[in-house]
Design a protein around this nucleic acid. Structure first.
Ligand code: MN
Ligand code: MN
Ligand code: ZN
Ligand code: ZN
Lengths: 157, 157
DNA sequence: TTTTCATTTCGGAATCATTCCAGTTTGGTA
DNA sequence: TACCAAACTGGAATGATTCCGAAATGAAAA
């Protein structure tokens, strides 16, 4: 449940020899502040723009690639949709709403650690991806018109 | 563990008003015979071609889309790689090797049914996606040169 | 069997997220 | 303050997937 901070991320980048640029600062800020939305590259760019003069989409992708390679963020890939990114590295289930596209973190008690079981299969597990798809509370409660239509906007949880 | 048969799939398509064409037969055959490889559209097309005269890539995509929409197959989406398709609809973990790209089915005993837990969160679960990434037995045993380089070929498990 | 036509297939063009590139800018060190 | 490897940029390239109009064809009806 601990939330990653701007300082932690920047610190790690610095340690590993990355230069601290306004673009990277802005992108990291967006990830820390909006990470719960599991934002995509374009939303990240929009938000980053509010925080510094110029940020190109190329740079956003490059930076996300670096952060991901450094194991500081995780990529979520979807068919026909932008990739989404998250800073929550704890093992959890991403609940993906099929109506509005919202992605909600859901933490489970680690029951029998299937990771260990998989290890017995002669497969060394380094990363897990667990997603449940379905309908979120809003989309089973609100009238149809309220659906965001597979977009993530700021107001989404 | 029950393996889907050609006849089951064709039957369901017929029931639902789809015409039975040589292309659909070939594609279904490929899915039944090579499904364990979690093949991508191009491999499916290549294999389908061996089973009937002409199959276009457009048709392969169209057919996979129909089968998927009918809930008869599942799509696995990956960053920067072709989507992959599988006929094994039982809940299982796909073990994805980061070296050779092979995808291995791994069935777990259903411990505490996290699906039910998620349901309590006000989220109605209709589909699950569980993937573990890491290194398969071959890729931790064989010399580096043996890696298939993120391709799936027929000989892969 | 033949006719009929909605469905399917086809190849090629369009789409669109992501990556690549070459030229310019810049953070951080000395 | 000068230097340069690293970073940034916009635009072009890539590549999987979708879209489209025209031609082919299952399968129901005659
Ligand atoms: Mn998450
Ligand atoms: Mn599988
Ligand atoms: Zn929703
Ligand atoms: Zn492997």
């Amino acid at each position: 449940m601990k939330k990653i901070t701007r300082e932690e991320l920047i610190g790690k980048l610095k340690e590993r020899g990355f230069k601290i640029t306004p673009q990277r600062l802005a992108i990291v800020d967006v990830l820390v502040e909006k990470g719960h939305l599991h934002p995509g590259a374009n939303l990240i760019r929009e938000e980053a723009r509010k925080r510094t003069e110029r940020v190109s989409l190329s740079t956003v992708y490059a930076t996300l690639g670096e952060l991901s390679q450094q194991g500081l963020i995780k990529n979520l890939e979807f068919d026909q949709l932008e990739n989404r990114y998250e800073v929550n590295l704890e093992e959890h289930i991403n609940l993906v709403c099929k109506l509005c596209g919202k992605i909600i973190d859901y933490h489970i008690p680690p029951s029998i650690e299937p990771k260990n079981i998989a290890r017995e299969a002669g497969f060394i597990v380094t990363d897990a991806r667990i997603e449940y798809y379905g309908y979120c509370r809003d989309c089973t409660t609100l009238p149809k018109s309220a659906h965001a239509g597979r977009q993530i906007r700021e107001e989404d949880a």
